[in-house]
Design a protein around this nucleic acid. Structure first.
Lengths: 214, 214
DNA sequence: TAGATTGTTAATCGATTAACAATC
DNA sequence: TAGATTGTTAATCGATTAACAATC
């Protein structure tokens, strides 16, 4: 339990799902939950859940009872780094960019988009909810002043690499990329790709296979 | 090469990346490309690329030359099912829903969102680009008439399960879920989750580790 | 106590990477 | 031909699942 030994990346990605589920339980004032019950609810393997929880929980579960919900939530928050909230900037205030700016879910997960940038002079100066959209020229200044290390790219594919380079030049170390291209970055910069169209295409393909198979 | 033997899911997910890259080559009028060159460009393992391509390509690559770009693109399109375009409906025309409706990338990947639905009477009746937004009551009729089998859920978490049930009742077999909860579906219905907040949180966590480590 | 649940060690499974013979 | 590249078989790696002793 929380022995600092490395946790598998896959397990790490499952944590947010446990987290959401546990928060629901918390709202229903349920105090204890056992691994098998979580497994059943989220349709995961029992042993997998047990192993995941053993890896994150600061306190061991109790045989016959399970885990204390509040404490487990705390442990997952800590493991996911929800306490030390991280600032991010977004480049490209198109439809998708604005949707992300307006998205409420981030704050609950320890992330805050503090500013957005757009090269279009008509867009810059406006705002989305409480989030201001600045012209590109302001990017270096704001990134430096606010010590931002995360960037979100929601510009067209053709502009993505240039934006990426600009972000990296200005101290960004982790990038969430919505443009459907492979970004080249220098060693040490982390890129996570979000290829919307591809995701949907994969789903569509599964569907075709399913239909054909039956 | 295309022997019908199962391809790994991971490999399947890489196909859209090969596809984008090959399309770029095509625009630059490059006719042939070798696996090692692709591997270098996309920063993948050489053998992995070779294996992936061997699995999808209808024509074998030529030693010393590589693969014919046009033909490889055709093969990947076929494998991903981009020819038999699949219709989808979207429920929840909020900011995110509208961003997806307006997103151009889907059509290139063989997917078309044909209609959107929203329970808000003020939203229903409007449209996003060429896509009309209907009241929820129209959903059964449109799904049935258009033989739609894919659904996209962009409603708040609290409403997602109800919307999911409604979709499944109306013949939807594959769901792309943006609500941060685990949807319960009957056997045979495929759910792909897209947890925005979680994605960003994972990235943020990696960043924290990176910073701490140095 | 009996039995449900825990955490861990061992076995299995799936995907990636390495090694290599075949080809142009 | 020599050498780059192909496709495949074997070895490695990582994650999941199964088996089981420990605990309350």
């Amino acid at each position: 339990m929380h022995t600092g030994n490395t946790m598998s990346l896959q397990a790490f990605r499952r944590l947010p799902y446990y987290y959401s589920f546990l928060r629901e339980l918390q709202e229903e004032k349920i105090q204890y939950i056992a691994a098998p019950a979580i497994a059943k609810a989220l349709e995961l393997n029992e042993v997998q859940v047990r192993k995941d929880l053993a890896a994150v929980s600061r306190y061991p579960g109790k045989p016959r009872i399970g885990f204390y919900v509040d404490s487990l939530i705390e442990s997952i928050q800590e493991c996911l780094g929800y306490h030390n909230s991280e600032d991010a900037v977004l480049v490209g205030a198109g439809k998708l960019g604005r949707a992300l700016l307006a998205y409420k879910g981030f704050e609950n997960h320890g992330v805050r988009i503090i500013a957005a940038f757009d090269k279009d002079a008509n867009v810059a100066g406006t705002s989305e909810g409480s989030k201001k959209i600045f012209p590109m020229e302001k990017l270096p200044d704001i990134c430096a002043r606010m010590h931002v290390h995360m960037g979100i790219i929601t510009v067209p594919a053709s502009e993505a690499q240039a934006v990426c380079d600009l972000l990296v030049e200005n101290g960004i170390l982790a990038i969430w990329n919505f443009a459907p291209i492979h970004l080249k970055v220098s060693e040490g910069v982390l890129v996570q790709n979000e290829n919307m169209a591809a995701q949907l295409a994969v789903l569509s393909r599964h569907l075709t296979e399913r239909i054909v198979r039956e």
